[in-house]
């Protein structure tokens, strides 16, 4: 069984592991780096629980081999808060009750992050499309929309 060395900058820190080429990025993060905030909710690339950012773009880490991320940078839920301060998206999810079981939440927040980076003032409809690759079974999405609106408002105020 051949392995390859994979080095990925994860949340700003260079991390390496010897993995089989078939190792999916999500297993690299979870099994090898023990960053277990990224979850696995399906086996068909549908649910979005494993969403992370690869070089600033959201992807499904269950549909990318870790070796493909070699030399690239990955942001996971563990990298959302900076300097001990919650990201406005994290704050929004707590304030607006945007989570219940919490299983979809990490992926959902990363989708929200890309959405707000592309579109800082999204409408409700745009938010719903922005998170359409992330399934949630608990919240009915309504408070997730509110959570992202909260973050958008907060981030806009931060810019001003």
């Amino acid at each position: 069984m051949s392995t390859v060395n994979v080095t990925v900058t994860v949340n700003g820190v260079e991390r390496s592991a010897e993995v089989e080429p078939r190792t999916l990025l999500v297993y690299f993060l979870r099994d090898h780096l023990r960053l277990t905030g990224t979850h696995i909710g399906c086996d068909t690339s549908n649910c979005g629980a494993c969403t992370v950012m690869l070089d600033g773009k959201i992807i499904k880490s269950c549909t990318l081999f870790a070796v493909q991320a070699n030399g690239k940078s990955v942001k996971t839920v563990e990298g959302l808060a900076e300097n001990g301060k919650l990201h406005p998206i994290q704050e929004g999810f707590k304030e607006e009750h945007g989570l219940q079981c919490g299983f979809c939440t990490p992926g959902m927040m990363l989708s929200a992050l890309e959405l707000l980076q592309k579109n800082p003032h999204p409408s409700e409809d745009e938010i719903r499309w922005g998170i359409s690759g992330n399934l949630c079974r608990c919240t009915g999405y309504q408070n997730i929309v509110k959570a992202i609106q909260y973050a958008a408002d907060k981030m806009a105020k931060g810019e001003a």
Binding site: I58, I59, G133
Partner: peptide, 9 residues
């Protein structure tokens, strides 16, 4: 087509 994550790849 699919969703934002998929369309990024």
């Amino acid at each position: 087509i699919a969703d934002p994550q998929v369309r990024n790849r």
